[in-house]
Write a protein that binds this DNA or RNA. Sequence first.
DNA 1: AGAGGTTACGGGCAGCGTAAGGATC
DNA 2: GATCCTTACGCTGCCCGTAACCTCT
Lengths: 299, 299
Amino acid sequence: MDLKALETFVWVAHLGGFRTAADRLNATQPAISARIAQLEEDLGVRLFDRETRRVTLTEKGLNLLGYAERMLALRAEMLQAVGEKGAVRGTIRLGVAESIVHTWLSRLVERLHYLYPAVSLEIEVDSSTVMREELLSHQLDLAFLVGPIAEPQLKSVPLCSYDLAWVASPTLPLPPEPVPLKDLARWPIITFSRNTQPFGAIQDMFVGSDMPAVRMFGNSSLATVVRMTLDGIGVSAIPSLVIARELADGRLKIFQAERPLPRLDFVAAYAKKPDSYIAATIATLAVEVAGTPTAGLLL
Amino acid sequence: MDLKALETFVWVAHLGGFRTAADRLNATQPAISARIAQLEEDLGVRLFDRETRRVTLTEKGLNLLGYAERMLALRAEMLQAVGEKGAVRGTIRLGVAESIVHTWLSRLVERLHYLYPAVSLEIEVDSSTVMREELLSHQLDLAFLVGPIAEPQLKSVPLCSYDLAWVASPTLPLPPEPVPLKDLARWPIITFSRNTQPFGAIQDMFVGSDMPAVRMFGNSSLATVVRMTLDGIGVSAIPSLVIARELADGRLKIFQAERPLPRLDFVAAYAKKPDSYIAATIATLAVEVAGTPTAGLLL
DNA sequence: AGAGGTTACGGGCAGCGTAAGGATC
DNA sequence: GATCCTTACGCTGCCCGTAACCTCT
């Protein structure tokens, strides 16, 4: 009955399957099978009901889950308290909103690697909506995304707040005064993909029978949004910080519109429960790093 | 960084040496060396200062000790809560006063083996004084001895209270009325060895200038005391319960003396700290078993 | 010399991955 | 047939015990 078995058990319980747990733990599925079988034999108790499409905890298993999580948490705490930094080991699956990638993510990674050389990251860039789901299903350990976080299973700390600006290439004939929505709608509006907060907010601006049809170009790649805006394909709504360089050398300019854009409040979020000690540490680190101003997007 | 390493660490810390820990854990000394070395490497921290005659905890080591003990306690609790009885595994070093051996110990062992088949015992019969020391130095996990226990590091629960009786062979010319101490001193008094409570109590009876010299035959083996008493070598002071059979068939008889003998209050005692879960369980079991009346000494 | 920890080395076993085998939809 | 867990099997690597070595009293 060693800790690896307990860790495996916790992941199987959370993910609801041996296969997914195997992926998560970088092992093969039979290995997970064997570990659980061993644990069940050691305890003399069946921990999972193997149903056709998923496994579910038995009563005993549910009972064990609490102990196992406390145990893993205690181990993590111990490592942080007693071990040197290099003793903190593991792989963290980190989800990041692209705006963060273009501002301070690399500085965080650098700093993390310096402080905790034995911690590795698996970084996934996705929309906040998707990442929120993935946090809940334990596919991600930690995510930097647009808040606020309503889910009670998740813990979140504020990271940074970026203003969203109307941006266009200077080649577009835009007046110095705030542009009415009707005029704005002459151009496609390029921004984050559908199912994101800014996309929705802009779409809402144009709801109403007297409103013109607006062409929205949702794009999952912020770099592409910038590229398209530089090329004069349309106007865009993106955080001004990620285009600091383009604004400085005049390749892009900010303009005002009839309706201002909402701010983007980024938070670090992670599941409250398991061995989230490392995740919490990285979140703290991210708060520090995100507080420091940064240079803009490097294209 | 597995639990075996932590357990080893805890024992080395408590016993103050690799060699003694090796004995305690049924392993060789190099194995202990290796486990500690591995643990130190994992944590990147030196845990023990190797001094010439003993090892002592470093500051980090002391820090770790708390975590390690909590961890082991949590594991033990988990096993009891979740596992079936057979999952409770381990070897307990049990110290027992001989009176207990002759009354209910075998019933306890039987019952323990029935309830927890994977728990094995190393039983040591010794005097309460010695066992108290051994509890404090963690050489014993649990002991059934004459209380009360004053040491705050030890936890104790009352087990049973036996009256000590003046006993002699019927061949000895003893009057039916209480025997004055002066007359009693004609015979050697056979009882538990020196450094026991009854021995001291009897010795104290004969303190005083007007008191006769008394010959006391301290004996570490209760069975021998009984044998010698049967053979009419002297009178003895032993728990009446252990000679129930001899009393019943008339080979021994109880007589009254000028001074009554103190009772013997037995308790189960164990160290409060480490993974004393099994010890506590056995103590509870012992309370049950000791409550049931028993047949006497089998010679 | 003896007690106690470390280093060297060989063997046994646990745990892993690959691959094949059910079961269920 | 697809999905998911289990079983079979060979291999690797870890951990242990034996034995020799080192150090301090």
